[in-house]
Amino acid sequence: MYVLEGARLCGEAIEKYRNGELDIYAAFASEKALERYSQYIPTELFEDEKAVDFFTVSESVCDFMSGTKGSQGVFLIAKTDERILADADISAGKRCGKYIVLDNLQDPGNVGTILRTADAVGVDGVVMCNNCCELYNPKTIRSAMGSALRLNIYNAGELSEVCEVFAKAGVKTFAAVIDSDATSVAKCDFSGSCAVVIGNEGNGLLKEDADCCDEKITIKMHGNINSLNAAMAGGIILWEMFREDNGRDTKL
């Protein structure tokens, strides 16, 4: 189980519950929140004894429960959706699939931000491998702003196993590295089925992991900067992956 906090996020989760796409065990809200965010919290949904348990709590309890300052006073406890990456999950055989792979990222804020960006551009799936931080970490869920509910997110072990699954499906894999000899993302051909691997914040991808991929790519930089925040790098790469899909000029 995990916790969802905030009116809009909980509202989206409730819609998924109504559609049978998410299991919710309990809901909590203050009286002020029920009045202020009534459009997101349909209390009639919780009146059935067989439905979700609903609790009205005080403002002070909300502050105690909250992981942030200035709580909106709305919380849900939901069931996690753990999916292990398998050959059948890759949609390359049906259409041009595009994926982002997170390898050993440890900052939940970075993971959440990448999920939000991946959702915005329209990736087919996100793979989390090599002991990435917990998807259901409250900070990850907050940073993702609902994208964790919408995306196809898979767990995996070693990156080599992930690359094998993609290779069988005809998905080309790209390792994002800091290497002047690697292909610039601005010149990379992302037109086919592909997956980009983003490595750990401090160490990047291990050489043996990068070597598992079909090609190495990099973000060319100027001046004294030789690396970017993982979420920022992921955002740039995701934009380039979908540049052609968005009808934009592929030549910079």
Rank of each mutant, 00 (worst) to 15 (best):
V61T: 13
Y99H: 02
N200W: 04
R83E: 11
E12K: 13
R116V: 06
K32V: 11
N110K: 06
A88Q: 14
I217Q: 05
A175V: 00
V52C: 05
K168W: 10
I90A: 09
C163R: 03
V197Q: 02
L45T: 14
C62Q: 12
C129E: 08
K251Y: 09
S60V: 12
G192R: 03
S38C: 00
D249G: 10
M128K: 03
L228Y: 14
P108E: 13
Y37N: 03
T56D: 00
K187A: 13
V162E: 12
I237V: 14
D124L: 07
I225G: 06
S143G: 08
V127N: 01
R18T: 07
D53I: 09
A186G: 03
E47S: 15
L85Y: 08
G20Y: 02
A167L: 08
A120S: 15
I90V: 15
Y40L: 00
A175M: 09
S91D: 10
G170S: 01
E164C: 11
A148Y: 03
Q39G: 00
M232T: 13
L206R: 15
K98N: 01
N224Q: 14
Y40N: 02
A182Q: 02
C163G: 05
E5I: 03
R95K: 15
V57W: 10
M65P: 02
E15T: 09
S60C: 03
S143N: 11
P138K: 06
R150Q: 13
A118F: 08
S60W: 00
D87H: 13
G93W: 05
K220D: 11
W239A: 15
S180T: 13
G247K: 09
R95H: 14
G157M: 06
N19I: 00
G112R: 07
F190C: 05
A88S: 15
A148M: 12
A144G: 02
L252F: 14
V171C: 02
V57F: 13
L34E: 05
G223I: 01
F54N: 01
T80L: 05
G247A: 03
D87P: 15
S71N: 08
G70Y: 03
A175D: 00
S227V: 08
V185L: 14
K32Y: 14
Y17K: 10
L151R: 06
A88H: 09
R150K: 15
L206S: 12
D211F: 09
G109S: 10
F242Q: 10
S180I: 08
D53F: 01
K172L: 01
F242V: 13
C62R: 03
G67Q: 09
G170M: 04
I219H: 09
C132M: 04
M221D: 04
F54C: 01
Y154W: 10
D211I: 04
L102K: 05
G11L: 02
E164L: 09
R36I: 09
G157T: 07
A186Q: 15
L34V: 01
R83F: 06
V197M: 03
A210R: 04
A167M: 04
E215A: 06
G70R: 05
